[in-house]
Amino acid sequence: MDRAQWAAITAVVLALLFAAAAAVATAGDGGRDTGPHAPATDSADAGFARDMSDHHQQAVEMSFVVRERTTDEEVRRLAYDIANTQANQRGMMQGWLEMWGLPKVSMDQKPMEWMGMPVDDPEGRMPGMASRAEMERLRGASGRQAEVLYLQLMTEHHKGGVHMAEGCVRQCEPGVERDLAQGMVTAQQSEIGLMADLLKARGAAPRR
């Protein structure tokens, strides 16, 4: 079994395990948890769930775009795995916010304020997120150009995601959300290595 298959299997298995853990936790709490054990809206737990949901949404979008812009099976398979895993994880985090009775969008806090490093970007981008111009370039590219651009953008996206997930590992309360964050760190670091190999095979490298 090659590295691509191992990375894909690791990501999917982690997503399924944490989805099952979240379902058990939700069932055990009887649904919505707005009591004293629900995190505050300005907590690390709530901030991570909101911010990583937005971060994941762009990864899903990029992955669907590149699948339409190339016929290369390696890149298309990786993009599918990323889109599937991150869409599932996003659904879990949105579900937790619903269960906690917390808003899925906070107008009172900047992204990553829960980490003590609020985003001050004109587009509101968190670390690793592609700009509008970069997304337009990806939509206009095709073939090898689209593959390289996607792998470079997603490498940066994963690095930003790992940074945020590590913040949750440090600051979130013990439980399924912190476990999910640790799983994200492990899976995305593995995919960063895989994308470096795919870029090298195409005569390219990560941008930084």
Rank of each mutant, 00 (worst) to 15 (best):
Met1Gln: 11
Met1Pro: 10
Asp2Val: 06
Arg3Cys: 03
Ala4Trp: 10
Trp6His: 08
Ala7Cys: 15
Ala8Thr: 14
Ala11Leu: 11
Val12Ile: 13
Val12Thr: 13
Val12His: 12
Ala19Thr: 12
Ala21Phe: 09
Val24Trp: 08
Ala25Phe: 02
Thr26Ala: 14
Thr26Met: 10
Gly31Trp: 12
Arg32Leu: 13
Asp33Phe: 06
Thr34Leu: 11
Gly35His: 09
His37Thr: 15
Pro39Thr: 13
Thr41Asp: 14
Ser43Val: 08
Ala46Leu: 04
Gly47Leu: 03
Arg50Asp: 07
Asp51Thr: 07
Asp51Arg: 00
Met52Lys: 01
Asp54Thr: 15
His55Arg: 13
His55Cys: 10
Gln58Gly: 01
Ala59Ile: 04
Val60Thr: 09
Val60Leu: 07
Val60Tyr: 08
Met62Asp: 02
Val66Phe: 03
Arg67Pro: 02
Glu68Asp: 14
Thr70Cys: 02
Thr70Met: 02
Val75Glu: 00
Leu78Trp: 05
Leu78Phe: 13
Leu78Thr: 06
Leu78Asp: 07
Ala79Gly: 09
Asp81Pro: 00
Ile82Lys: 00
Ala83Ser: 15
Ala83Val: 11
Asn84Pro: 00
Asn84Trp: 15
Thr85Asn: 02
Gln86Pro: 01
Gln86Trp: 02
Asn88Thr: 15
Leu97Phe: 14
Leu97Ile: 12
Glu98Arg: 15
Glu98Ala: 14
Met99Gly: 07
Met99Thr: 15
Trp100Asn: 01
Leu102Ser: 04
Pro103Ala: 11
Pro103Val: 09
Lys104Asn: 09
Ser106Gln: 09
Asp108Leu: 08
Asp108Pro: 00
Gln109Met: 10
Gln109Asp: 11
Gln109Asn: 12
Lys110Val: 04
Met112Ile: 08
Met112Lys: 10
Met112Arg: 15
Glu113Cys: 01
Glu113Phe: 04
Glu113His: 08
Met117Asp: 11
Val119Ser: 07
Asp120Glu: 14
Gly124His: 04
Gly124Lys: 06
Met126Cys: 04
Met129Phe: 06
Met129Lys: 06
Met129Leu: 03
Ser131Met: 08
Met135Asp: 04
Glu136Cys: 02
Glu136Met: 11
Arg137Tyr: 03
Leu138Ala: 09
Leu138Thr: 08
Gly140Tyr: 05
Ala141Trp: 03
Gly143Val: 03
Val148Cys: 05
Gln152Tyr: 02
Leu153Tyr: 07
His157Met: 05
His157Asn: 05
Gly161Asn: 00
Gly161Phe: 01
Met164Cys: 03
Ala165Leu: 04
Ala165Asp: 03
Glu166Thr: 15
Gly167Ser: 13
Gly167Thr: 12
Cys168Gln: 04
Cys168Arg: 02
Arg170Met: 13
Cys172Phe: 10
Cys172Leu: 07
Cys172Met: 06
Glu173Gln: 12
Pro174Leu: 05
Gly175Trp: 03
Glu177Cys: 00
Leu180Pro: 00
Ala181Lys: 01
Ala181Asp: 06
Gln182Gly: 12
Met184Leu: 15
Thr186Pro: 00
Thr186Ala: 14
Gln188Ala: 06
Ser190Tyr: 13
Glu191Thr: 05
Ile192Ser: 09
Ile192Asn: 06
Gly193Arg: 10
Leu198Ala: 02
Lys200Glu: 15
Ala201Leu: 06
Ala201Tyr: 09
Arg202Gly: 09
Gly203Lys: 05
Ala204Lys: 07
Ala205Asp: 13
Pro206Gly: 11
Pro206Asp: 13
Arg207Met: 10
